[in-house]
Design a protein around this nucleic acid. Structure first.
Lengths: 349, 349
DNA sequence: CAAAATTCTTGGAGCGCTCCAAATTATGGT
DNA sequence: ACCATAATTTGGAGCGCTCCAAGAATTTTG
């Protein structure tokens, strides 16, 4: 690969002049400029290597997005929520003329990824992992963490998941439901986990603030209706597990309403319901979470706890781009009633 | 920002040793190592700056994805097709441990973006723009161009769009349709363009090989049924234009079948049909293109010309990652019949 | 026509790091 | 103790570029 210096030598001028030809051509006498350009062509020099410039001025002009937990970028792209989040981030990047780097990191390589990412700032997916935050702080780059509050010194954006969960339950109890099932999220790879009532270890503290908060909201909402979450089966499946719906119906046949942690999970249930000939909301009501665009397109359209996912992504990007003093933002959430919830039938299916 | 040298000075050791402490700690005597680590902590040195390493070994460990035409990354993320494509790319990046950089570029900055992107290779969205290819070649980095064949020296991946288009028309004429409307894509920003039969300038050569090919396929398919594309209204809308459906129904009320260029467009039509009480496929058949996941979830599910979008993205990434001799890949396409197409009713609505 | 003003070019000084051959120090066996 | 051997540590040599002060060439001015 030829360098500025090579071209300079070939054209009989200095490095600096060649640099000028490419970056500030108006500074170079036309005739000389042409000579340099000719030399560059002959040597197959396609312009200054960005590496050099980078080292010089020290800006990558990029921000990094690191998926939550140990998820890969591809998993983010698969989920309706993840896509909208990335869309929001990319919107802000478009506006700022910044590159968006989707940084991968498996469990073991996540720290190295943060240490070495070629970015000027980070967006960290939600994480219970304090180590990750420390890694990010070491980089001395602006960053924001999603879906968990990491204290006053750290940028964070989350939604009011608890209120959302409470609202979901209230909506359903208001409709008359008394028999629930909860489809929660398993944050480690593996098959669904079924927690039936009465079992010892209930997953109320899974370790992910995101999930814990919603579970607590469900608990509170149920308590308001004199119901105990301890009597409600809780199933945990990985986010995109297509068997989620089946596991729910197999294990919680008496439920008239299913609470979920995401639209994606709710959609899985809808799909399984179709396969089994179970009517939604006739036989069972299903409520989603996130209010993604997908939730409006299902059959029937999903009742869901909506948040502004795109806005959240955009705000996250802006926060790292603007590098202002740390803020902890809590975004509101809103119950959107559509057609997947209704009063339970008098007689249980 | 402290550097290796600073830490070295503070700890009374050389640059090299500090580097070793961070990169190959086993090479450094534990006691010394600790001293260095202590010094690093005091100075707030968070590890070697990736910039330096980068310059040294010259690899970014990233590939860039540049959206087609003058679209922004956000526009790609909005479209079902774009999302699956990026998903496929990210899948390959996950596997390779590579970062995926979503490189923005407006009309004016696209060339600069290519020149300066901090990547080891490129995936270029489809483009009629020869300048872009030249830019990419100048970088002397592996790259692949999507949806247009740029000659034997350049990596490219496209689908057999013509055959797909022919298959779409055959399916519909086979069902008995004789009255068509085509919803094509406008590749510049702006309102829909309506080309009614008999008008002078018909958009058969829009300049985007991607679109041209499909239009030709439609033409051929129609010809096979003794129909002329010159008698078929062609409407062009930008990819995500939500008014597309309305424009189609307003301008082509007599059509019994609508051919589209993407599932996204077809979905728009479905939405508008619901609003107007037009039945699909009762009153009008609609056929999509791409076979994205979304196409299976609509009401009714879309008949579409399916391609393996995820596989395409993955292959594209692999091609630039592997940096093998240039290939021109043409991917097959398949008619997937679902419920949005049916025989036309005897009497036109 | 010389001096002053203007326009171009030059090359040193980094940017922060890793590699590597050479130098230094420690270890172990007589 | 002494030397061979092994284990550590060192610092020069880049990586390719841009900035910038200073020098050179050219043009303008009086």
């Amino acid at each position: 690969m030829p360098t500025l210096a090579d071209v300079g030598k070939a054209a009989g001028v200095s490095r600096g002049t060649v640099s000028n030809v490419f970056n500030r051509p108006e500074l170079v006498r036309p005739e000389l400029r042409e000579r340099v350009e000719a030399a560059a062509r002959t040597l197959g020099f396609g312009g200054p290597d960005p590496k050099g410039r980078l080292l010089r001025d020290g800006k990558f002009n990029a921000i990094g997005f690191m998926p939550p937990g140990a998820y890969a970028i591809a998993e983010v792209m698969r989920s309706p929520y993840g896509r909208e989040l990335v869309l929001g981030v990319s919107l802000a990047c478009d506006e700022a003329g910044t590159t968006l780097s989707l940084v991968n990191g498996t469990d073991n390589t996540r720290f190295a990824s943060i240490r070495e990412a070629l970015v000027d700032g980070f967006i960290l997916g939600h994480s219970a992992d304090i180590g990750l935050i420390t890694s990010a702080q070491r980089r001395r780059l602006p960053f924001v963490i999603l879906e968990s509050d990491a204290g006053p010194d750290i940028n964070s954006i989350k939604i009011d998941g608890r209120s959302g969960a409470v609202a979901a339950v209230r909506h359903l109890t208001g409709l008359g439901h008394r028999h629930f099932g909860i489809l929660s999220i398993r944050r480690t790879p593996g098959p669904p986990i079924v927690h039936m009532p009465g079992q010892a270890k209930r997953p109320l503290l899974a370790g992910f603030p995101l999930d814990d908060e919603r579970l607590e909201g469900f608990k509170q909402g149920l308590a308001e209706a004199n119901l105990s979450i301890d009597d409600v089966p809780i199933i945990e499946t990985t986010p995109g597990d297509p068997s989620a719906g089946a596991v729910v119906f197999d294990n919680v046949p008496e439920a008239t309403a299913i609470l979920t942690m995401s639209d994606w999970q709710a959609i899985t249930i809808l799909d399984e319901a179709v396969r089994r000939g179970i009517e939604v909301p006739g036989h069972v009501s299903v409520i989603g979470f996130d209010g993604t665009a997908e939730s409006a397109r299902t059959t029937p359209p999903l009742t869901t706890i909506a948040q502004d996912v795109i806005g959240k992504g955009r705000l996250a990007a802006r926060m790292v781009l603007d590098n202002e003093p740390p803020r902890q933002v809590v975004l509101p959430v809103e119950l959107v009633v559509r057609a997947s919830t209704a009063a339970p039938r008098a007689k249980i299916r």
